[in-house]
Structures are given as structure tokens and as C-alpha cells.
């Protein structure tokens, strides 16, 4: 564990240098602790694969803390203590498991054939490999609700499209290198699109802005196009 300044109003707590579930767990333990008991001047945190950044207001930190020390030093002291506890803690966190129905291939997954051809597999094998893994949500970013997932089989790793699409439909499930993800909003993108979900990942009118949170487990359930159309009809 390492704590570094990130500019003059944030610090970064690093738990390692690799993408691994136990690192995500340490990050989540730390952020849960700060949720329960926010330190003076705390604004928000942003978790990522190997580290988490805490933003704070230096004026508030000093007002409610010590005058003779910098706000950054005070925040680093607080977080280094909490991060030690988060590392040493063996307690498991009950992860939410979210099933996301996906209609693979066809017009909803225009790159499924290309991905299968790249790996010299059948399209059914690609679907099977993709749908049988449990994926861990490491972070959300890039767009509201866009999940960065870990856990995809190496056997499915596929380079991005040579020419990115100007429009990728909301709900598209894609592969880029060793990553897999779901586009919450229509946007341009170069990921290989293998399917689409009728479920909305960005839910701006609900209590929580996004379907997924960092630390959730995602399972993709293959559905036929008919069921996709039905679910899409109900949700829209």
C-alpha cells in the first residue's frame, strides 16, 4: 500500500500494480469505511483497478483539523491508517450479483462472427466462453454507468476494430483486447460488438444513477432475439 499526493486537493491510495480481485476488495473496504465515517473536508472518492483517489477541500480540512499542518498531510495520515486496516482486514464483503441478459450475434452483435473467426472458434463457443464467466466490476467511468469488468477468458481477447464505429447502440456488449464491457449510452467506439442487452445500465431517474457499482459481480445470460424484443418493449 502506498499513498501519494495527486495535485493539491486529492490523494491517491495504491494497493498494488495489477488487476486482481483482492486489490479491489481492499479498495472497497477502504471506501466503505469512508462512507461510514467521512473525514473532515472529504468530497468524494473514485476507485479504479489498482488505486482509489480521494478528493477533499483543503480549507475544510484545516478548519476542522490542525492549523499548523497542511491539509494534504492530514488527509494522508487519516487514509494511511484506514488503508492499513483495509489491507489487513480478512473480512469478506457480500458482493451483489447482477444478471445481465444478452442477445448475442445477428444484427445486435455484428462483430460476433469476426471474433469467432479471429479465434477459429464457432460463434456458439464464443457465446459460451463469454457467458460462463463471472465478471467483477472494478470501476465505472468513460461514460455514466460504463463498467470496467475483469474476469474475461484470455481465449476471447480480441483487438479493437481497425475502424471505430461512429455510433454504437446503447446496451451493446463488446470486447476490446482483454476487456469486456457494455455501452450504457449510444456513443462512438471501436470495441468488437458481440451482443446487446435490453437492460439499461445508466438509469438517471432512479435512486442510484447506474445499474452497476464497483465491487458487483456480473453474469451475462444469453437470450434469444425474441426475448430481447419483449424485454426491450417492456423497459421502453
Amino acid at each position: 500500500m502506498r499513498i501519494e499526493p495527486f495535485g493539491d486537493q486529492a490523494v491517491r491510495v495504491r494497493f498494488g500494480d495489477q488487476i486482481a480481485p483482492h486489490i479491489q476488495l481492499s479498495i472497497q473496504r477502504l471506501t466503505l469505511q469512508v462512507d461510514r465515517d467521512p473525514f473532515p473536508g472529504f468530497i468524494e472518492y473514485v476507485p479504479a483497478y489498482t488505486n482509489v483517489v480521494f478528493y477533499y477541500n483543503p480549507v475544510e480540512v484545516i478548519k476542522r483539523g490542525k492549523k499548523e499542518r497542511t491539509a494534504q498531510q492530514q488527509v494522508m495520515d487519516i487514509l494511511s491508517q484506514l488503508a492499513e486496516q483495509a489491507c489487513g482486514n480478512e473480512r469478506q464483503i457480500q458482493r451483489r450479483v447482477i444478471h445481465i441478459p444478452v442477445c448475442y450475434g445477428g444484427r445486435l452483435g455484428p462483430d460476433l462472427n469476426a471474433v469467432a473467426a479471429f479465434h477459429q472458434m464457432s460463434t456458439d463457443q464464443v457465446i459460451k466462453w463469454h457467458a460462463q464467466s463471472e465478471y467483477l466490476v472494478y470501476m465505472l467511468g468513460f461514460a455514466p454507468g460504463f463498467p470496467f469488468l475483469g474476469g474475461m477468458s484470455e481465449a476471447l481477447a480480441t483487438p479493437r476494430r481497425a475502424t471505430p464505429r461512429l455510433k454504437v447502440a446503447a446496451g451493446s456488449v463488446g470486447i476490446a483486447g482483454r476487456q469486456t464491457g457494455v455501452y450504457p449510452l449510444e456513443s462512438p467506439g471501436g470495441w468488437q460488438i458481440i451482443g446487446r442487452t435490453p437492460v439499461s445500465l445508466f438509469t438517471p431517474k432512479a435512486d442510484s444513477p447506474t445499474l452497476l457499482h464497483a465491487g458487483d459481480v456480473v453474469i451475462f445470460d444469453p437470450i434469444p432475439e425474441q426475448e430481447y424484443a419483449q424485454m426491450k418493449g417492456i423497459s421502453s
Binding site: E44, P47, G141, T210
Partner: peptide, 9 residues
Amino acid sequence: RTGYQRYGI
């Protein structure tokens, strides 16, 4: 809009 960057907002 602070507090929602963790959701990608």
C-alpha cells in the same frame, strides 16, 4: 456535480 464520479458521472 460532485459525489457521482464513481458512477462515471
